[in-house]
């Protein structure tokens, strides 16, 4: 249906090649001179900035908008409310998103990083492009609850935003395209590829994994990686991982988008990067610890409609020690440089 742009192949290759020679390029991006990065060994991203030319000013506008409560109906909720940097831009301690008027959503707020590689967005994959993704939560009545036109009016009326738009685009006229492309720069440049695991894989900093972490990695490769595929730790497929259906929400997942019975209760495989920081877990945030997640895969898989073939026959077979090792490995996927990168923090503080 949609063909991913591949015209930046050469560009990607150049970056990729330069990654190999110059390890500095994989340091956190400098504050000035925003660049696209394809970390060593990664596929080319789906989203490049070919049409949406990168600039400091657009990035700054996108950053301001990401943390802007005016994007919600009553100026109380910003994107950053449910996407917190210390939680890898997931929402700490919230099973599901908490919107305007104390309304409660139906799904867990996912972490935000490496979005340029995502073929689609949301747990059900309903949104097909990073630039139109913000429309989902902004207009969701349980989240930011806004209509887009009043949001444009509010931004247009703000001298701060007129200034930011003018700096970014040369004109202070606000429109959705300028707004969403700026946000796509801010979110699209949230690269996370500097975890302990990454240093180990790239053989940098003399990084080593402990025995437990290595055992966990090997178990991960044999038990988990067919869905949580390296290096992004997701295959981006839609799968039913055997969670019992929440009878109050009855979230049909991917079927909500496709209308196909074969997609019922399937959700997009989430990345496991930064997983130690993005609790609670699963599409509805029903588990609070990684231990609970692994226990689900060994003891809790429910054989309902469309259970993923890889989880048939009672899920995964893992001993208690195996689980401890896998959790030790998952902890190596935390990218502390990303979590502390000032360029992505709230500019108002």
């Amino acid at each position: 249906m949609c063909k991913p742009a591949n015209i930046f192949f050469l560009f990607g290759v150049l970056i990729f090649a330069s990654c190999k020679v110059d390890p500095k390029i994989i340091e956190p991006l400098p504050v000035s001179g925003l660049v696209e990065v394809v970390p060593e060994g990664w596929p080319l991203p789906k989203y490049t900035f070919s049409v949406n030319t990168l600039s400091e000013e657009k990035f700054a506008l996108g950053r301001a908008l990401f943390y802007e409560p005016m994007l919600s109906a009553d100026n109380s909720v910003s994107c950053g409310s449910c996407h917190q940097q210390f939680a890898a831009f997931a929402n700490a301690d919230h099973a599901v998103s908490h919107g305007i008027n104390d309304l409660v959503g139906t799904r867990n707020s996912p972490g935000i990083f490496n979005l340029a590689w995502h073929p689609y967005f949301m747990h059900d994959g309903g949104i097909n492009h990073i630039e139109v993704q913000p429309l989902g939560p902004i207009t969701n009545t349980l989240e930011m609850g806004a209509d887009i036109n009043p949001v444009i009016v509010k931004l247009q009326a703000s001298s701060r935003y007129r200034d930011l738009f003018k700096k970014a685009y040369g004109s202070d006229t606000v429109n959705t395209q300028k707004m969403f492309r700026a946000m796509a720069q801010f979110m699209g440049l949230m690269y996370s590829y500097n975890s302990k695991y990454d240093y180990y894989k790239r053989q940098e900093n003399n990084e080593t994994l402990s025995d437990a972490e290595l055992r966990g990695y090997n178990l991960f490769i044999s038990k988990c990686s067919s869905c949580h595929t390296e290096p992004l730790f997701s295959d981006f497929a839609f799968r039913n991982n055997g969670l019992p259906v929440n009878v109050f929400v009855k979230d049909s997942g991917r079927a909500h988008i496709t209308g196909l019975p074969g997609d019922r209760y399937k959700f997009k495989t989430p990345s496991l990067r930064n997983i130690a920081k993005t609790a609670p877990y699963m599409h509805d945030g029903r588990f609070t610890t990684l231990q609970q997640c692994l226990d689900h895969y060994t003891k809790g898989v429910t054989n309902l409609t469309n259970l993923d073939p890889l989880l048939q026959n009672n899920g995964l077979q893992l001993s208690a020690n195996d689980k401890q090792d896998i959790i030790a490995f998952l902890q190596t996927l935390t990218d502390y440089k990303f979590l502390g990168d000032k360029r992505f923090s709230d500019p108002n503080f």
Binding site: M1, V51, N52, H129, V132, I148, N175, T176, Q177, F180
Partner: peptide
């Protein structure tokens, strides 16, 4: 189809 897959559009195709 192409314009349904091209992100934020403007003019007649502005999501607003």
């Amino acid at each position: 189809s192409a314009s349904n897959c091209s992100g934020a559009q403007t003019g007649a195709l502005d999501p607003a």
